[in-house]
Simulated scan of single mutants.
Amino acid sequence: MMSSTFYGSLAVTLVTALAAPAWAEGDVANGEKVFRKCAACHTVEADGPARVGPNLHDVVGRVTGSFEGYAYSEVMTTMGAEGHVWTPEELDKYLENPRQFAPGTKMAFVGLRKPEERADVIAYLISLNPAGAEAAEPAAPEAEAEAEAEAEPAN
């Protein structure tokens, strides 16, 4: 007979797998092609310059409004000062409709309406600096609970 703990664990595993974000399944090669829409304003090379927009080489995991030498809009500077980080989830929301996500942004691009295009571009950006994406991932609930339990003083 299977225990309720097993079924509970199985349910959590299934929900997590089924709820995997679309960007996790993005196509890097297609994302590079879709990124051509962005390349007029953004560079992606390591240590590349800003153009009309900031360099996006390490954007995944970067604090918003923090690319050195780029003059950000007030909304982006404020978001960064408040601790906003470009996680894949946040990039997905922003790329769908930049002006709705961050009213006052300087980005004139209307956005990528197709979820698969956003997923592909995000996968491409992650491929440029995978360490940034790993740093931007939120800790699993189990890991957070374990860290909190370890931090609590023993009675």
Rank of each mutant, 00 (worst) to 15 (best):
T105Y: 00
M2I: 11
G83S: 00
F67D: 13
P49Q: 09
F67R: 14
V60M: 08
V110H: 09
V85F: 12
M2C: 10
A17D: 12
V28W: 03
A20E: 11
P54T: 06
G69L: 07
E146C: 11
V34H: 01
V15A: 15
H57W: 14
T5Y: 13
L18C: 13
L18M: 14
S9N: 13
G53K: 01
Q100R: 11
S66N: 07
K114E: 14
L125R: 02
L18P: 09
T77V: 05
T105W: 00
G69P: 02
A133D: 11
Y94W: 04
G31F: 05
A50E: 05
C38L: 00
A11E: 15
V44L: 07
T43V: 06
G48C: 07
V110W: 05
L18H: 11
G53Q: 06
N97D: 11
V15P: 08
G48A: 06
G104P: 02
S127P: 03
F35P: 02
A139Y: 11
E137Q: 15
K93M: 14
A29P: 01
L91D: 00
A46Q: 15
A131K: 12
A131T: 10
G80E: 03
R36M: 11
E152W: 06
V52S: 10
A140F: 13
E134F: 05
A24P: 05
A136E: 07
V28A: 01
E45P: 06
Y7G: 10
P130R: 03
F101N: 11
A39W: 03
E150C: 08
G65R: 02
A29M: 01
D120R: 03
I126Y: 10
A108E: 06
Y124V: 07
K114T: 01
Y70I: 02
L128Y: 03
A40D: 08
F109W: 09
P103F: 00
K114R: 09
S3T: 09
H57A: 13
A119H: 01
A136F: 04
E148Y: 06
K93F: 13
K33Y: 08
V15I: 14
